[in-house]
Amino acid sequence: MKPTDPSVTWIEEKPLGLAERLYLPLFVQGLTTTARHLVSPKLTVSYPEQRPTVGNPLIYRGVHRLNRDQEGRVKCVACFLCATACPAHCIDIVATNSPWPDREKYPESFAIDELRCIFCGMCEEACPVDAIELTSLLDLTGKSREEMIFDKEKLLSVYDMTKDAEPMKSASLGGTL
């Protein structure tokens, strides 16, 4: 864009007033700001001892979990919608015929590679039965790459671990929302 372009509006800088040119008011202003922050309450926390507060756990995108229904069975119906939606291709599902009469299929194995996952939450959006959800667990560590591939048992155990603090989100399916 050229400076002569009609859509460019030139705004003249306001000339400095006397107070600004004397510098003293600005000096005091700057010092008060820093001094205020010096004594104001700190925003960071001492991490391993203190946990950071997650603003809204229901919309936080942390570690995944696989939800259970009222009978304690895995909710997933192995429809592959999450694996299809996943932009990082980190979900691996092996489906087989369901032993229960209320659905056709269920996942024989359900693995998420947490190292590949980009925590976008598309799987949660895609799931028609609200089986996969992202929790507010934010510190995810492991000692090997293999350990970071979460299988079905591990994902279900994440559910057991977090179900009290973070109830399931869909009300029609037993959640709170």
Partner: peptide, 27 residues
């Protein structure tokens, strides 16, 4: 002295982009 320094000295903080005469003429 302080007031004189504030009033008389160039503030040296003019950050407006330089517009050449050609540009001003075109405008």
């Amino acid at each position: 002295g302080w007031i004189a320094a504030g009033v008389l000295t160039p503030s040296g903080t003019d950050n407006t982009p330089i517009r050449t005469h050609t540009m001003l003429d075109a405008e």
